[in-house]
Simulated assay, not measured.
Amino acid sequence: MADNRTMAQMLQAPIEGYEDAIVIPPINANNFELKQPLINLVQSNKFTGRQDPHNHLRFFNKVTSTFRHPEVPNTSVKLLLFPFSLDGEARDWLDKEPPRSILTWDDLVSKFINQYFPPSKTTYYRNEIITFYQKPNEAFNEAWERFKGLLRQCPHHGFSELHQLDTFYNSLNSNDQDALDSAAGGNFLDKMPQEGLAIIESKSKVRYSRSRANDSRVSTDAPLSNSSPSNNSFDMQQNTRLSRIK
């Protein structure tokens, strides 16, 4: 078929290829509207590509969970709002994704995580978890918080709760292992995973409260220790005067 367009028409920019990467499922609901306060809340914590992507998703999920509509799936709301939560490099990344290449919320999460938390990073954190050990002079609660931090930084680590507790227990020094065994009334690993986790959390809180109490004592005692140098200074002055008299 002959192309009857003029040369001017042929030289015009094409109108295709401007579709977004995210495909929003049809929403057949009356009075559905994304309120500006919700958009503002999403935009209050924009991801630029340099923050922790897992923390961003946690915040985003928490915010979008506050929106409820009987005829609109929450995943559709998330697909609509997610672009508002990106800025800078991250927004450029989404804009460069092929048109209509993201069909579901799971698709979006998978692409987002793999972009900003690649498999090499997952391997690194898995190794950090597997080879975790309590540092010399590291308090029990400090080791536990550091271990939980590693788990949180890589939530798709794949380790079961049993594996996590076994790894942490075997990373401890003998004194802290004995303390856990004592709290368990025997071998700590003979407990059910949920019981073991409760014991660790309880012991961690006790250590934390004691640590804060010790810090408080140090700050309370500080003025007393500061007073001794002045006494020494006074004694030195007195000795100097005596030597002059002699």
Rank of each mutant, 00 (worst) to 15 (best):
Q36F: 08
P37F: 13
I39F: 05
L41G: 03
L41D: 11
V42L: 08
V42N: 05
Q43I: 03
Q43S: 13
N45T: 09
K46H: 02
T48G: 09
T48I: 07
Q51L: 12
Q51S: 14
P53C: 05
H54K: 01
N55R: 12
L57G: 04
F59Q: 05
F60E: 01
N61D: 14
N61A: 12
K62F: 11
K62H: 11
K62V: 09
V63K: 00
V63L: 00
V63R: 00
S65I: 01
T66N: 02
F67M: 12
R68N: 07
R68W: 01
H69Q: 11
H69L: 09
H69R: 09
P70M: 05
P70L: 06
P73C: 07
T75S: 15
S76T: 12
S76L: 00
V77W: 04
L79V: 03
L79A: 04
L80T: 04
L81W: 03
F82Y: 13
F84K: 12
S85A: 15
L86E: 04
L86H: 04
R91F: 04
W93F: 14
L94T: 08
L94M: 12
D95E: 13
K96P: 00
K96T: 10
K96Y: 08
E97N: 09
P98V: 11
P99C: 05
P99F: 03
R100C: 11
S101C: 08
L103A: 13
T104F: 02
W105T: 02
D106Q: 13
D106S: 13
D107W: 06
D107H: 14
L108Y: 05
V109Y: 06
V109K: 14
K111H: 12
K111L: 15
F112G: 05
F112T: 07
I113D: 05
Q115E: 15
Q115C: 14
Y116Q: 10
F117R: 09
F117C: 08
P118V: 13
P119K: 13
S120K: 14
S120C: 06
